[in-house]
Write a protein that binds this DNA or RNA. Structure first.
Lengths: 254, 254
DNA sequence: CTTGTGCAAACTGTTAACAGAGGACATCCG
DNA sequence: CGGATGTCCTCTGTTAACAGTTTGCACAAG
């Protein structure tokens, strides 16, 4: 996620076509360029990406395992649709993970780590003041990622990110309003305070409450959400067109 | 997992070769038939399973996404090796998940669910008394699965199972001794009591303590564990032979 | 006008073949 | 005798072609 398009042939020597296709597909899906329920036409995707069907099939199979698409035999793969209940369950899992990371971090946070988190919170405060939702969104992602990374493990980070991707399948463009940013960042500060105090129990409670807050903030302004079964859109070519704008100024984890 | 080999052509109409290969590969890996670090030779596997390389590649790509194998470009895929630290991290994640499920279940467990869990605990008590490790192992799996299913969500169940699969990559055949079974089941009873009382906090603490206990019980009798990098075994044909016995009388979540 | 049947096109599942990279072994030079 | 180098072989990455299935449409019968 850090450096892309570094050296021209270094990519070829470290990435396979299938993995590149998988990344691109994931990006398309998460950005909403390919909305949930859409069928992934292998031929169209292969043509659009300039590769053969083999790598595309491998990539789709991988996304199937990671839960972003659902495959029906002899019918194809569809971008997964999350029901509202499933989305709420995912939120709850993130509650548990965040609480776990916060509690663990409280016991062993270094002053440098505290300072890093503090800087992020201050940055978000400024972003909220300036009503800069995009910047708040990015910083918020970083904050939670750092929290999981410092307190949990690399596995926990991946897990949290994966759950976030699933959530993205559900919530589209839940606008971040200034009030929500203020409230969210106040919760961040509360976590930070507990970490500074080294109070594990308080950190856990604060972390859990924060994600629950995000869940609530999101749930209050949500439509209804789709259903799970395939429910494709068009048998013809529906994928590989997209090209909508994909601004992502949503309330990630509140 | 419930019904396999139902109708002869029903399988063909509901499963693809790639998914069948994926299942078989996963079974081989988890059973130890293909030990961690082994390179997965596509040609050999395809020949052994009687299919072409395409489905095998798709299956391996899926396992890569789910974390069971690690792929190096132009070198192949290797069964993932978990370091001891990673395994401990996975245990900690299961601690968090179990605590979350127990707390949620305490608030809304039906008498039927309590009875089901109670029956399992009694069954494990009998198994421990009879020193029947295999039976205890199976019931223990069921108990935790039921716990996650009742208290968490289907997503949580899948998560817990996936983490269990990763753990299986690390611990091979950690024998269950009678003492451990007794201790483990006493913790089960403690969880059950908290659930019966409807005490969410106590249930969470008991659930967390139980997984921590399993982690400790396992850690006390563990070797050292491997390292993460590829570390293949033989460039030639090392996979697709296996055929060892694969008894699985280990301490699952103890 | 509705419904059932048959055909045709498109797409998925699978296989086989081709090109390039990596590694091992033998050979040659210092 | 040790090390570098060249060659061969195996395996992965990719592509193209083939077979089976599903889906949509048209046509005919009631």
């Amino acid at each position: 996620m850090a450096e892309s398009s570094v050296s021209p042939l270094h990519i070829v020597r470290t990435q396979s076509l299938a993995s590149l296709v998988a990344d691109e597909l994931e990006r398309m899906i998460l950005s909403g360029e390919i909305p949930p329920g859409t069928r992934l036409n292998e031929q169209a995707l292969a043509a659009r990406l300039g590769v053969s069907r083999g790598p595309v099939r491998e990539a789709v199979r991988g996304l199937d395992r990671s839960g972003l698409v659902v495959t029906v035999v002899n019918q194809g793969s569809f971008v997964r649709q999350l029901s509202a209940e499933e989305a709420m369950d995912v939120y709850d899992l993130r509650v548990a993970l965040t609480g776990y990371a916060c509690e663990r971090l409280a016991g062993r946070a270094t002053p440098e780590q505290i300072a890093t988190l503090e800087a992020m919170v201050r940055g978000m405060e400024a972003a909220a003041e300036a009503d800069d939702a995009a910047r708040y969104y990015a910083l918020n992602l970083d904050f939670h990622s750092a929290l999981m990374s410092m307190g949990g493990s690399s596995r926990a980070v991946r897990l949290y990110d994966d759950l976030g991707k699933e959530l993205t399948l559900f919530r589209r463009r839940a606008l971040v309003v200034r009030e929500n940013m203020r409230e969210s960042n106040a919760e961040h500060a509360k976590i930070l305070r507990a970490l500074t105090d080294g109070d594990g129990a308080a950190a856990r409670v604060a972390g859990e409450a924060h994600i629950r807050g995000g869940k609530r903030r999101f749930a209050t302004s949500t439509p209804t959400g789709g259903t799970e079964p395939p429910g494709q859109k068009r048998p013809g070519e529906a994928a590989a067109r997209g090209e909508e704008d994909h601004v992502r100024d949503e309330d990630s984890a509140g």
